[in-house]
Design a protein around this nucleic acid. Structure first.
Length: 255
DNA sequence: GTTCTAGAAC
DNA sequence: GTTCTAGAAC
């Protein structure tokens, strides 16, 4: 079997049979796997599990096949993926705080023309700093404003719109509609600056990331200092009130 | 999806 | 001469 169908294989497999290096976690309906070639610091894929007969491989081939079929079933699958994604996002944010001391954005969305078979939702941190991000196609496929990357929020909104709009959006899901976007020029998603080529874009993205890290760390530091000042102030107020009973006043300050 | 590599771009 | 891209093969 080709690598292009590897996700389909995972989606059929009993989760217990998948190695921990591939599978992050699973539920009755979905699998969360580590992207084999992460295009950012954090990058997961969420796949709906194949469950015959309704959730078969054909229906779950990609977003187009799913939304071209039963609309209620499509909404169920996508909503379930969204709920899973929210959990994964929280876990990513915890890891961000542990490893970096601050949080940054996490994007959740589908590719307009995925090259691998089987529906997969990307949950990816908004840095796009990774050795595995090598080509214009890689970058443009995750650019948050280009249109190839379809944010979960937007996809869900189709289901709330009127049926005419919904079917119009379904028709737009032909690969021929989104593939040309991958060939667009390279624009930094932070500052819109145009970059000549991939090496200069990657260097620029790293600089943007370094700036963001510096800003976030400074603001975290300011926040800690303010908290310390507030704590000290409340302690001195309570100790004044209680005429020097330091053990009770420090307990009060903490609560 | 990646890898490989010819030839375009610099 | 080296860097970079993009298309074929897998």
């Amino acid at each position: 079997m080709s690598n292009l169908a590897i996700l389909q294989r995972y989606a059929r497999t009993s989760p217990e049979a998948l190695p921990a290096s591939i599978l992050f976690k699973h539920s009755a309906r979905n699998l969360v796997i580590f992207d084999a070639f992460p295009k950012a610091i954090f990058h997961f894929l969420i796949l709906p599990r194949i469950q015959e007969p309704r959730l078969n491989a054909d229906v779950l081939t990609d977003l187009r096949t799913l939304v071209s079929g039963d609309k209620e079933l499509a909404k169920e699958v996508i909503t379930s993926l969204e709920e899973e994604a929210k959990e994964v996002k929280k876990e990513i944010e915890d890891e961000m705080v542990d490893r970096y001391g601050f949080k940054w954005d996490v994007w959740t969305g589908f590719h307009g023309a995925p090259s691998m078979v089987h529906l997969h939702l990307h949950v990816i941190s908004a840095d796009l700093c990774s050795d595995k991000l090598k080509t214009k196609k890689h970058y443009n496929s995750f650019h948050p404003k280009l249109g190839f990357f379809m944010h979960m929020e937007e996809v869900l909104s189709w289901f709330e719109a009127d049926p005419t709009f919904f079917s119009a959006r379904v028709k737009q899901l032909k690969p021929s509609k989104s593939e040309p976007l991958l060939k667009e020029k390279l624009f930094c998603f932070h500052c819109e600056a145009e970059m000549k080529n991939m090496p200069s874009l990657k260097a620029h993205l790293q600089e943007e990331w370094n700036k963001l890290e510096k800003r976030r760390k400074e603001s975290a530091k300011r926040k800690r200092k303010l908290d310390e000042l507030r704590q000290a102030a409340s302690q001195s107020v309570t100790s004044d009130d209680s005429q020097g009973d330091s053990s009770t006043s420090s307990k009060k300050a903490k609560s």
